[in-house]
Nucleic acid binder design. Structure first.
Lengths: 218, 218
DNA sequence: CGAAGGAGCCGTACAAAGTACGAGCCCGCG
DNA sequence: CGCGGGCTCGTACTTTGTACGGCTCCTTCG
């Protein structure tokens, strides 16, 4: 099929789009920058993809494919903790992907595979269909929402957030938002704090809650 | 200050932007459509706002201001349930807002007020600073993530999702994703199902988990 | 009451981005 | 060796954000 060397393909287009978004941000991902990344003229891309929307769909699905799938039949808490951690890591590697999720209705094959496998893992652990739906809704909401918050953090985790705080927490602000200021100064701004740690705390809280549900088999 | 009648103001600009986004979607919110909504020439807007980014910042803050604040000193579970429900409802009214959250680093005054009040409510209920941070991280992640998922649903909740399902769940798909198909057919596609119900379930699970934390005073 | 000044508004124009259209090129097959 | 068609490209049109400078009308002060 590949007539000439290094022929363009849909996967190569998607991969290049991901690379550009990772490197320069989602807004920098234009048909022209993408073509440049591929070493090709802008219009060449359109023979492998109908439009930019399709590229974004493909990119989201590619991101999903990076998430490690749970082992069906393994301990569900272990597997789900692993999957959630992997999802968070992937979404941290591609922060722009979270914003894309919201606008994409049609899931791709990797996304469907992901969900199917997760459902299988829950069912194998004795969760009822209904419980599985509940469990996935909570966990996925938490993971996505956490990713949204991480993406909107103005610093790159444990970077000099003092500077950032200084910009926001001036004297007047501190007076108007005393509780926010307290939280920031006595906790968030302490050395060693990492918002990322909240992920494990929250996830454990949710997994504990799910563990408490009455279940058929263990 | 308002020299002529119906003078443009920053709040009016933000409100009009919100209206356009609600009515026609975020992509339809352009400087030109916004100006048209205001009955004004495109460039007129720039005398009240430095650029489009500032409008989006303002819109996000305006959305936050719509969320009902918790009553500091009230029962924290009741208050937080109410706040979360309000937040979800607001984000359902403005589905495009979720995607904006991710790209906006600088919080506006309404956003700061919101967070400050929530912190105050937790602290008043006996949560330590650290526990408050944990609690907010879980709850907010859940709420945002749930909103993301709701926004990406291809149907308007309890609309004819049979049609949508028919499009996705053809014979081949059903074979490749058996667990997904099972979940869909025996639960999601049953009459009376609403993804929104998962919100209350998940929220209760989280609030239960928070309730189990050792706390100073009630 | 009139002139000055500035605030608010607008018309024009340009750069960047998505993409339609049709021509050119190059490969494998006959 | 020639041909057909898939891949690529150049050009150009539309839409969007926004810089620049002019116009207009209210407010203020003499």
């Amino acid at each position: 099929m590949a007539r000439r060397r290094d022929a363009l393909t849909r996967p190569r287009v998607i991969a290049a789009a991901t690379a550009v978004a990772d490197r320069d941000g989602l807004t920098a991902l234009t048909m022209r920058s993408l073509a440049s990344e591929l070493g090709v003229a802008p219009m060449a891309v359109y023979h492998h993809v109908p439009n930019k929307e399709a590229i974004l769909d493909g990119v989201v699905d590619a991101v999903f494919s990076e998430i490690t799938l749970p082992d069906v039949g393994g301990d569900w808490r272990t597997e789900m903790r692993m999957r959630a951690a992997s999802a968070r890591e992937v979404l941290r590697r591609h922060p722009w992907a979270v914003g894309l999720l919201e606008s994409r209705a049609a899931p791709g094959p990797a996304t469907l595979t992901h969900h199917d496998t997760v459902i299988a893992a829950f069912r194998a652990a004795g969760f009822s269909v209904r419980q599985t739906a509940h469990a996935m809704a909570v966990i996925d909401s938490f993971v996505y929402g956490f990713a949204v918050q991480e993406a909107s953090l103005p610093f790159d985790d444990s970077e000099s957030l003092d500077e950032v705080a200084d910009g926001i927490l001036d004297a007047e602000t501190a007076e108007r938002f005393p509780h926010l200021t307290e939280l920031a100064t006595v906790y968030v701004l302490e050395p060693g704090y990492s918002f990322g740690d909240e992920f494990d705390l929250g996830l454990d809280l949710i997994l504990d809650g799910l563990d408490r549900l009455p279940r058929a088999a263990g």
